[in-house]
């Protein structure tokens, strides 16, 4: 029998070995924290967070095809669908406006009033253009928002769609005039007297978006596009020309509400 002592192994614990386990835990924790921040920074990149709050049409512009902005408004909140918003067409003296009634189109009225649907594109006819005898224009109007008047005042305070002589002359010259009508913010309204025939208009450059500028000054409600497009000769193309004849409601004005020359002097 051999009385051998049991083998014992001794291992010296070096200072490096002693700190290896806490170091490993710290490294693991650091990696997890870094991974968490990577994930959180990716999820925080929401594009809408960087848009100013008053940009109602941040993803749209007035240069988009007619009807895009109006139909996009129908997908947003608010009682805008199936509401006939009263509008009033106003032009220079002698100008007549007419909306199509089915395939026919009437002679026109000087200050045409009608109820239009938000989202629809309405092509109307302008005749009696000053300094352009016999010329006709067929602009389009697209309502992109509505008004919220008190009861009984809807037709008394329509959206005024004003077209002046500069617009019509530019359109007859082959240019495209885009007008974005907006409701003025009363806090930043232009301090000038305004009537129907003296509507405030602001000209912008070609590199600017009319809808974006209008969003800064108020609430955009309509887009008017005035070009020199003429109706097609083929009757089968007429529905396409008039954007499918969206329905509109006629509004008849009393005789004494017709503006007179004295009123606007």
């Amino acid at each position: 029998m051999s009385n051998e002592a049991p083998k014992t192994t001794t291992k010296a614990i070096t200072p490096t070995r002693r700190f290896e386990r806490p170091l490993r835990l710290w490294l693991l924790l650091a990696i997890c924290v870094a991974a968490y921040f990577l994930c959180s920074s990716a999820s925080a990149a929401d594009p809408s967070d960087f848009l100013p709050p008053d940009q109602q049409h941040a993803l749209y512009s007035a240069d988009m095809p007619a009807g895009v902005v109006g139909r996009a408004r129908l997908t947003r909140r608010g009682p805008v669908a199936n509401y006939y918003q009263p509008v009033k067409f106003v032009g220079p003296e002698g100008t007549m406006f007419a909306l199509p009634q089915g395939a026919a189109i009437s002679r026109g009225e000087p200050n045409l009033m009608a109820g239009l649907l938000i989202g629809g594109v309405y092509r109307f006819r302008v005749t009696g253009i000053p300094n352009a005898e016999g010329a006709e224009l067929y602009p389009t109007v697209e309502l992109i928002d509505r008004m919220y008047p008190p009861d009984g005042l809807a037709t008394s305070y329509p959206i005024v769609l004003k077209i002046d002589e500069i617009d019509m002359q530019a359109a007859l010259d082959g240019k495209l005039v885009t007008r974005v009508v907006y409701l003025e913010d009363p806090q930043t309204a232009i301090p000038l007297v305004q009537t129907d025939r003296q509507a405030n208009v602001m000209d912008i450059g070609e590199h600017q978006d009319a809808l974006g500028v209008a969003d800064h000054f108020g609430r955009a409600v309509a887009i008017i596009r005035i070009g020199s497009l003429a109706p097609p000769r083929a009757p089968s193309l007429m529905p396409e020309f008039y954007f499918g004849y969206p329905s509109w409601a006629p509004i008849f004005q009393p005789e004494n509400d017709q503006p007179t020359a004295v009123e606007y002097q």
Binding site: L176, L183, V201, I204
Partner: peptide, 17 residues
């Protein structure tokens, strides 16, 4: 007092720019 007022932003685009 209910008194909405409208204004316009106009952009005239031509074929030359």
């Amino acid at each position: 007092v209910y008194s909405p007022r409208f204004a316009s932003i106009r952009k005239i685009t031509g074929a030359v720019a």
